[in-house]
């Protein structure tokens, strides 16, 4: 387990190398899937995309399909690995909890200057909800994609009902995937979220930011519990509920006295510059 506080560097390790690799394997192959999936629609030629330098292949449906397949190998392997690796290790910090919807509304309101953010665990409640949403979208894309691939290879005459289900699930969840991706990247437009950005590249976030925004997570790490991470354990769920009901608000307010959002970002920049 890699989550830990690097006090001397003023950093907290948020993601292990494996998690970073998983994220980028899914993100990059997902991006390739998105583009080649679009090219499976007869639009590249019509919209002159084929005339763009380096995109001459975009009008060739079979080349696009080949790339789509190649990217799916990475995408599916990474997604299944993710489920099993973290499932077996009992890491459930990203799964939604009771009260997440209500808490998310509060958080979103706070982004627009209405009210205060509650103190967070490692993940924000809307991150947990977004994770569940994205995981569901990806699962549906993979399942329907596997049916479509099987049809292409072995059973072009499989029952039309099954083909139509697979096709339309694939198409509808493709649109949802694009929307979810926009929302996922769009979340970084919101200032309070930006200090998390470096985490998905370097694995670390600034200690000041973590202390200010994720006090429940830091408390877990500081309590020295095994592996530094207890989210998903009954105790952690208890803590979350306490947080949701406002029991930990004092910590949050205390933290706010020392760290205004702007400071956190400046801290982040300083660290980056320093590095």
């Amino acid at each position: 387990m890699s989550e830990r506080i690097l006090a001397e560097k003023n950093l907290v390790v948020r993601h292990s190398l494996i998690e970073i690799i998983e994220h980028w394997a899914i993100a990059l192959s997902g991006l390739v899937l998105l583009v080649t999936g679009l090219f499976e629609l007869p639009l590249a030629n019509r919209y002159y995309i084929t005339s763009l330098p380096g995109l001459g292949w975009s009008g060739d449906f079979i080349k696009s399909l080949y790339i789509h397949y190649a990217a799916s190998v990475v995408f599916i392997t990474a997604a299944v690995f993710h489920l099993l690796y973290h499932g077996i290790r009992g890491e459930r910090g990203m799964l939604p909890k009771r009260g997440d919807i209500r808490a998310s509304i509060l958080v979103i309101k706070s982004f627009f200057g209405k009210g205060e953010e509650p103190p967070f665990e490692k993940y924000l409640p809307e991150q947990r909800l977004a994770y569940a949403g994205m995981a569901f979208i990806i699962a549906m894309l993979i399942l329907s994609g596997l049916v479509k691939t099987y049809k292409n290879l072995y059973a072009p005459d499989m029952p039309l009902t099954l083909v139509l289900w697979a096709t339309w699930i694939h198409n509808i969840f493709f649109v949802l995937f694009i929307l979810a991706l926009i929302a996922h990247i769009g979340a970084l437009v919101l200032k309070p979220n930006r200090p998390m950005f470096r985490g998905i590249f370097t694995g670390t976030v600034s200690l000041a930011y973590a202390r200010h925004r994720h006090p429940l997570w830091l408390a877990e790490l500081e309590s020295g519990c095994e592996g530094g991470r207890k989210e998903g354990s009954p105790a952690a769920y208890g803590a979350a509920e306490a947080g949701d009901t406002g029991a930990a608000t004092t910590t949050h307010e205390d933290a706010q006295e020392t760290f205004a959002a702007g400071d956190v970002i400046r801290d982040g920049t300083k660290e980056k510059n320093g590095a």
């Binding site: 494996i18 079979i62 399909l65 080949y66 397949y69 190649a70 799916s72 190998v73 995408f75 599916i76 392997t77 990474a78 997604a79 299944v80 690995f81 993710h82 489920l83 099993l84 690796y85 973290h86 499932g87 077996i88 290790r89 993979i142 994609g145 596997l146 691939t149 099987y150 292409n152 290879l153």
Partner: peptide, 26 residues
């Protein structure tokens, strides 16, 4: 389409790659 068959087979096997790597890694 035969050009894509091999890669298509790898797609169908990909869940197994994921299971093997996930279980072994964990």
């Amino acid at each position: 389409m035969a050009e894509t068959d091999k890669m298509g087979k790898a797609v169908l096997q990909a869940p197994l790659y994921g299971i093997a790597a996930g279980v072994a890694g964990a």
